[in-house]
């Protein structure tokens, strides 16, 4: 194993085919929010610095640029490497206040900050809100939730984990302030599930 020098952010690659991979990554994000709970696949190939996953990095590179701000949770700020990588590949400004972030990248989802720490938008401009991109080990095996609302024909199940223990209450509070609120993109590996603010959620099977 190469232990000589920590990887320089510039040597860690972004998209090999930026135009096509940005489009396909965006398309997966759009369909994830259009079809809450339905799994989408990210078809990007890039090498971000650990512990940032390929899937979360792909979303950041596809959606962020010098016009956007990114907040990183403590799991992603253990070193400056991830911030440097994102700055280099997107030109985005890294902010320390989650309320100023267009996108928030969260590596330790069990310790997800309260949603009202982020931008929720205003009644006049509900789009001025933070999109949360959560990196999880798995989209299966967690306590199941039933999702309904726009984009869902009937009901669909969500079992990603780990999520905060009060996840259901948070999402319900998020739904209650609609049209304000945050939108979630939940990523494990190259799989993606969207949870827009329009989705209603309840614990399944109980």
């Amino acid at each position: 194993m190469d232990t000589l020098s920590p990887a320089h952010p510039h040597s860690l690659s972004g998209f090999a085919r930026p135009v096509a991979e940005s489009q396909s990554t965006f398309h997966a994000a759009m369909m994830a929010l259009a079809r809450p709970g339905q799994r989408q696949t990210l078809a990007a190939s890039l090498t971000p610095p650990a512990p940032l996953s390929e899937g979360v990095a792909a979303l950041a590179l596809a959606l962020c640029d010098f016009e956007t701000t990114i907040w990183l949770d403590p799991a992603f700020t253990v070193s400056d490497e991830i911030a440097s990588y994102l700055r280099f590949h997107t030109g985005a400004r890294i902010v320390t206040s989650p309320a100023q972030a267009n996108f928030a990248l969260v590596g330790e989802t069990a310790a997800l900050p309260a949603f009202d720490a982020f931008a929720l938008g205003t009644l006049d401009y509900p789009d001025r809100s933070t999109t949360l991109i959560l990196q999880l080990p798995s989209l299966d095996g967690g306590p199941p939730f039933a999702l309904s609302g726009p984009g869902v024909a009937g009901e669909v199940s969500l079992a990603a984990h780990p999520l905060p223990p009060d996840f259901e209450a948070r999402m319900q509070a998020n739904r209650a302030v609609f049209p304000r609120g945050v939108d979630l993109l939940i990523v494990a590996g190259l799989s993606l599930i969207g949870l827009p603010r329009s989705t209603s959620i309840r614990k399944a099977g109980g």
């Binding site: 930026p18 965006f26 994000a29 929010l33 640029d65 401009y125 509900p126 827009p196």
Partner: peptide, 29 residues
């Protein structure tokens, strides 16, 4: 460039589309 628009413009429009999808019926500037 693919589909005429530059990548920066596409990203800006794509971010607006994501908000539009998340807030059905709301007009995103």
């Amino acid at each position: 460039n693919f589909a005429y628009l530059d990548e920066q413009t596409k990203r800006m429009i794509r971010r607006a589309i994501l908000k539009a999808v998340a807030i059905p019926g709301y007009q995103v500037p």
